[in-house]
């Protein structure tokens, strides 16, 4: 060891802990480096989103330019002849989702009220947990259960009695085969109940306690509090929750395709098989042989994207107005 190095070690040994700390500020570049690293990962999300929009619009161009608006209003879906109209799918998606929301909304609001306002503490947690589990079940399993359990059940216990007495009405006409619009709607309802319930609970939770207690102090019953205070206050938020549930129902694929019957027809009867936008993509996408066929399916995807986009934005806005209103309420 030469004398210079020796000197150096001595100096280092003598250096106090304090100096050591000042010298040891390493990786200074990470101050900005880490920030930019995380920033760039944020960029990936933005790029991905723009890329999704570009791919969808680009690849559906062919179909858009060939069919124009007629794509949405035409009933003919005939890949062999090269005719593509999306109306049967749009119709099926809308009708099945509407059935779902009509069934799911009251049930979900009821559950939300039960869990937030009425249930005893010991029951709250397990029930909330089970409802959340309902949301965790993959849609393919809903489809499997729907196909083998619900379809026969609905055919034998719902459709047969109804068609016996009400078969004359167009809404309930046709053979009771179990598969079809009604079954898809009911299955979708089960699937979106946990979503609407969770959001509705959040909205109901922000209703200012002061208002509730003030009304109770005036001698109102719990029932009156729910109708006169909670529901009016939470109305936009609950509406938003339902819209988000609707958005989920519109895009649901596997469960629907397994029980809706997959027939591209528009029938007035709820018992008749139908089809949906998401289902036709899942079923026919990998079989689409020519460009215009593929392009038409992608355009259906683009439509789904746009509709869910608008519904989501609207619903978030409604929920946000409730959250904002509650803040104002607390202050005032």
């Amino acid at each position: 060891m030469n004398s210079h190095a020796q000197l150096q070690t001595e100096v280092q040994q003598n250096a106090s802990l304090q100096q050591k700390i000042y010298q040891k500020r390493r990786f200074r570049w990470m101050d900005h480096g880490f920030k930019w690293l995380t920033f760039s990962f944020g960029c990936i999300i933005l790029i991905m989103f723009v890329w999704i929009i570009l791919e969808l619009t680009n690849e559906s161009k062919q179909s858009i330019s060939k069919f124009g608006l007629g794509f949405i209003f035409s009933q003919d879906w005939n890949p062999v002849k090269g005719e593509f109209g999306a109306l049967p799918f749009i119709y099926g998606t809308i009708v099945s989702s509407l059935i779902a929301i009509i069934i799911a909304a009251p049930i979900s609001i009821g559950i939300a009220l039960f869990l937030n306002e009425m249930a005893p503490k010991w029951l709250k947690q397990p029930v909330a947990f089970m409802i959340e589990l309902l949301a965790a079940i993959p849609s393919i399993l809903y489809g499997l259960w729907g196909l083998f359990v619900m379809v026969p059940f609905i055919r034998d216990w719902l459709q047969k009695p109804i068609s016996k007495y009400l078969g004359g009405f167009p809404l309930f006409s046709g053979a009771p085969i179990g598969l079809g619009m009604l079954t898809a709607g009911i299955l979708l309802a089960i699937m979106i109940i946990p979503i609407i319930t969770a959001l509705a609970r959040d909205v109901i939770r922000v209703v200012p306690t002061l208002q509730k207690e003030g009304y109770l102090a005036l001698g109102a019953t719990k029932w009156e509090v729910i109708w006169k205070i909670i529901l009016p206050f939470a109305r936009p938020g609950i509406l938003g929750a339902c819209i988000l549930g609707l958005g989920r129902a519109l895009g649901e694929t596997m469960a629907v395709t397994m029980v809706i019957g997959n027939r591209a027809e528009i029938k007035a009867s709820l018992f008749a098989p139908g089809h949906s936008m998401a289902a036709v993509i899942a079923n026919e996408f990998t079989e689409a042989t020519d460009d215009i066929y593929l392009s038409s399916l992608i355009e259906i995807g683009l439509l789904l994207f746009l509709v869910t986009f608008v519904l989501n934005a609207g619903a978030r806005f409604l929920i946000w107005t409730v959250a904002k209103g509650s803040k104002g309420g607390v202050k005032g």
């Binding site: 791919e55 958005g247 895009g251 694929t253 998401a278 992608i298």
Partner: peptide, 22 residues
Amino acid sequence: IRFVIDVLLGIPSVVIGIFAYL
């Protein structure tokens, strides 16, 4: 980014499938 995340959460997974395919 938060808005985009909201939108992505709402996009049907089959549409993501189309994108991944393309």
